[in-house]
Design a binder for these strands. Structure first.
Ligand SMILES: [Mn+2]
Ligand SMILES: [Mn+2]
Ligand SMILES: [Zn+2]
Ligand SMILES: [Zn+2]
Lengths: 151, 151
DNA sequence: CACCACCTGCAAATCGTTTGCATTTTTTCC
DNA sequence: GGAAAAAATGCAAACGATTTGCAGGTGGTG
């Protein structure tokens, strides 16, 4: 595994993403297309602020918040919570394909993308034992990266 | 499993907790003792605000924030992030004993305490594959509780 | 019981995020 | 292509959680 590696999976075409958005009966606006494109280029989860800077001010920060909300409810992006109070987002494949987790350095915030998801069978067990339905999970790892260990 | 069940493990004595705090070279103040006691009584992770109300205003909310910080760095409490922007805390046993996870209803926020922790072997694997050290994890489950399913 | 380092209350500041409203865009339909 | 309706944006103000500065209060030690 490459410690700095980004998503190895082929990135979806921007055209594919905008099509998905329109299929959900939403308008395709310039900010939304640009946000999707920024996320497509990003190797790791991006905060609203990071997305906004990647857009170089082409739209307002409030619009980034509103658009990301929409993309999330449309199932195009997934939210990640890496422990600081900041929400981060990544593109999500159709039907939830592309679900995965991260390993974050406590010192320098370096992120490793973890390709496998371990927990689906756990979801099953948790669901059947509790009676809850539609069980999902959120899992992130934390540690000290090689660089920060020697420093 | 009891869907509403709280921690089944025996609760530590307040005296034990205050001793642990003092061993870390920290003062035992009234707010700190009261906060430990509130957490000891709580069945689920508590937010700063919940702790503060449990104290019935006996100390300031800012003091709750500062004290919980201290308790966290002293290893007496563990932080949980249940998806809303609010941090919650539970007592943690010595040497990290008592680590566990939760299942939260997306509709009514009902919390189920999950007794087992599945991920230590995953930590191992993640650590050896990435070169990170001191790997820990954060894992929570979300779903719809039986009551909210019928509603 | 006095001292001092540490802690607390209070209020203001900070930070991420949300929202109201007037204006601009997108889409639909001629 | 252009007009009209519906929806999205920009801007600034509001918000809720958390942090912080400072002046006064307290715990633990000798
Ligand atoms: Mn990722
Ligand atoms: Mn718990
Ligand atoms: Zn690092
Ligand atoms: Zn519920």
């Amino acid at each position: 595994m490459d410690p700095h590696g980004a998503h190895p999976s082929s990135k979806p075409l921007l055209e594919t993403l905008t099509a998905r958005l329109r299929n959900m009966a939403h308008r395709l606006t310039t900010p939304r297309r640009d946000i999707l494109d920024a996320l497509r280029r990003g190797a790791h989860p991006m905060s609203h602020r990071q997305i906004h800077s990647a857009l170089r001010g082409s739209c307002d920060l409030a619009t980034v918040y509103r658009s990301v909300h929409l993309l999330e409810s449309a199932g195009l992006v997934q939210r990640f919570d890496l422990g600081d109070g900041v929400r981060r987002y990544e593109l999500l494949g159709e039907d939830g394909h592309g679900h995965h987790h991260h390993l974050v350095c406590r010192r320098c915030d370096r992120v490793v993308e973890l390709l496998e998801c371990f927990a689906p069978e756990l979801e099953q067990r948790v669901a059947s034992q509790s009676g809850y339905s539609g069980v999902t999970h959120r899992l992130e790892f934390f540690g000290t990266c090689p660089a920060c260990q020697s420093a």
